[in-house]
């Protein structure tokens, strides 16, 4: 059989085995690399020759106002995302409920919060006092809306409610990705609908939910910056406040950009470990993309 392989080319297998192997040459890669180095050099030259005082960048990188802005950005990201994921799970479950009232409410929520700009929603929350001067339970407890909904609250509600509408769809997709046989097996051992969701379906849906939600956490870090319009002092707003005073615009934008990149990088590392945790029972704990053979296939 081995001798048959080479017939027609003039050499048999033994003859082929003696030849020197020359790897394929990737000329395109070398050309692309050269072009990119050129472009990078040009950009670096522009930054080096431009009116950028790198000392100022270093000096403001750890300025108290910048650091307190950074802390606010992180706190807001965590709170708004927590609210968003909680609402997302609740509304996804409502959306898939057999109860038409709950489904209707979920549909309306997703329709409204996906259908209007985030900036507009932030302004609405911030100006809520114009519609509801007081909030609370009439006759029992009441607060002036203006005292309750400050920049922090308005931003949290705006970002969180908006995020919830998007996360609801992500969670719904995750739930749909779990094989219906899992639900039937859970029912067959006497689980109710909600127990089945909590114990069987959601843990398996997480594998599908985590990557897009991780993506949205990263997006949320940067979205907090639009809260500067309602005076929430996150990192970008504090950077702006400083450059209004000292006119070092580019330097302070570089400071802010640097911090955003640091936070996002740390989040990406966190996401890697989270994904690995939720790929339990998928035969592969390294979350490298690969084809996983389904059980019983």
């Amino acid at each position: 059989m081995t001798s048959a392989v080479g017939i027609g080319i003039g050499r048999d297998l033994a003859g082929i085995a003696g030849l020197k192997l020359v790897p394929r040459r990737y000329y395109g890669r070398w050309v692309a690399a050269a072009l990119i180095i050129l472009v990078l050099a040009w950009v670096m030259k522009a930054f080096a020759e431009g009116q950028i005082d790198w000392k100022v960048v270093g000096q403001f990188f750890t300025a108290p106002a910048i650091l307190s802005g950074l802390v606010n950005t992180i706190i807001m990201t965590v709170c708004a995302m927590a609210l968003g994921v909680a609402l997302g799970v609740i509304f996804a479950i409502m959306y898939m409920s057999p109860n038409p009232v709950l489904r209707g409410v979920a549909l309306f929520y997703i329709w409204f919060f996906r259908g209007t700009p985030l900036l507009l929603q932030l302004l609405l929350w911030f100006n809520l006092a114009l519609v509801f001067p007081t909030i609370g339970i009439p006759g029992l407890v009441e607060w002036r809306t203006i005292d309750v909904i400050g920049p922090f609250m308005a931003t949290l509600l705006g970002l969180g409610m908006n995020q919830g509408a998007y996360t609801a769809e992500v969670v719904r997709g995750g739930i749909l990705s779990v094989d219906v046989g899992q639900t039937e097996a859970a029912k067959s051992i006497g689980m109710t609908r909600l127990t089945t969701l909590r114990r069987i379906v959601l843990p398996q849906a997480m594998r599908v939910i985590i990557p897009p939600v991780g993506n949205e956490v990263i997006s949320m870090v940067k979205l907090t910056s639009i809260a500067s319009v309602i005076q929430f002092s996150e990192i970008l707003r504090n950077a702006q406040t400083i450059y209004y005073a000292n006119a070092r615009v580019i330097e302070l934008l570089i400071v802010a950009a640097g911090w955003y990149l640091i936070v996002v990088t740390l989040l990406q590392i966190g996401q890697f470990f989270l994904e690995r945790f939720f790929s339990k029972g998928r035969g592969d704990r390294r979350t490298k993309p690969r084809i996983v053979e389904e059980a019983g296939a």
Binding site: D179, G181, Q182, E184, A185, A186, K187, S188, I189, G190, M191, T192, R193, I200, P203, Q204, K280, G281, R282, A295, G296
Partner: peptide, 26 residues
């Protein structure tokens, strides 16, 4: 109700063609 049906199912066990073991559990 959902809970009452779940309780009734306790008297029967079921084995499926495609096993349907919970994939995320040992």
């Amino acid at each position: 109700s959902d809970a009452e049906i779940a309780r009734q199912r306790l008297s029967t066990g079921m084995v499926f063609q495609r096993f349907n073991l919970f994939n995320h559990m040992t």
